[in-house]
Design a protein around this nucleic acid. Structure first.
Lengths: 148, 148
DNA sequence: GATAGTTGATAGAAATTTATATCAACATTC
DNA sequence: GAATGTTGATATAAATTTCTATCAACTATC
């Protein structure tokens, strides 16, 4: 019999200190990743961060890039910026014209405001672009799929 | 009257020490960039490196990425690996199946051997992929052009 | 209202990456 | 053949990035 609690992976449940413990890093480090635009944790009304299992996995992937692969945080930002988000969400020509991420942006698209685009009122945390392409291998496969 | 010598930019003319002086860096650093797979200098029959003006420009671009943008060398390698080379040279399905760069490679395509592909007997130094996409901005534009 | 945990910010420690100096062996040039 | 410069390799120095400790102020929970 399975007594384990079965929560959806994207449900935010861990406080920042719990997340830090799970990951074996400090709380300020987690805040730093967020300030750099690598992660978007859920926040309560009173501005406290809560992390989901999916968030933890994502951060573990980022750590692997930094620690094992030797990619600097600025490098990860540029790599994220190369995700062809315009194809993933299939936004309009008009949107692309107005989009700072599309037009030469060298930071992850979810770090931009996107005024006057379909992304303006979306929560990037729920966006396929943010959710699906944490690993650089996935980014390459995505580009291959849309160019083949 | 113009007395300056007018050489094609891609003609290798600078020795490694001359190149190092032009760039304001040391000779071992230049060799390191090469060992990491960021550059492919021309070599003489006796294995001595010679650099072209275009090589110098390329290295200056790499230095800017490292020094100004804070991207680590390993990060630059991954970014280069995201160039959709298969589209640039428009290689066959068969080639793609045989290509280590295409299939999950996280290093620049020109650092692979490419056995049993059209690239096998090409000199990557002369390849459009190697020559044209030094800057990450250009890579993004390339992806945009082929997906639009 | 008291305890425990959070917030953002700063400053400093730790770790890692980047760059250089040096070496003996070989190549080039005169 | 002598002087200069190159090769690859190793070891060390310099620079930078990554991470953490600490702070006062605020929030949550009991």
């Amino acid at each position: 019999m399975d007594n384990s609690i079965n929560l959806p992976d994207d449900k935010p449940v861990f406080s920042i200190s719990a997340a830090a413990k799970l990951l074996g890093i400090s709380v300020p480090t987690l805040r730093m990743y967020e300030n750099e635009g690598l992660i978007i944790p859920h926040k309560t009304k009173s501005n406290q961060r809560i992390y989901s299992k999916k968030d933890i996995d994502r951060i573990q992937c980022i750590r692997k890039a930094i620690k094992d692969k030797g990619i600097s945080i600025n490098g990860i930002k540029v790599i994220y910026s190369l995700i062809p988000c315009w194809e993933v969400i299939n936004c309009s020509k008009e949107d692309r014209k107005n989009c700072g991420a599309y037009n030469g942006g060298e930071n992850p698209c979810w770090t931009y405001n996107h005024p006057n685009t379909t992304c303006e009122h979306r929560d990037c945390r729920d966006c396929e672009v943010y959710l699906n392409y944490t690993q650089c291998g996935k980014i390459k496969t995505l580009v291959q799929n849309i160019t083949d």
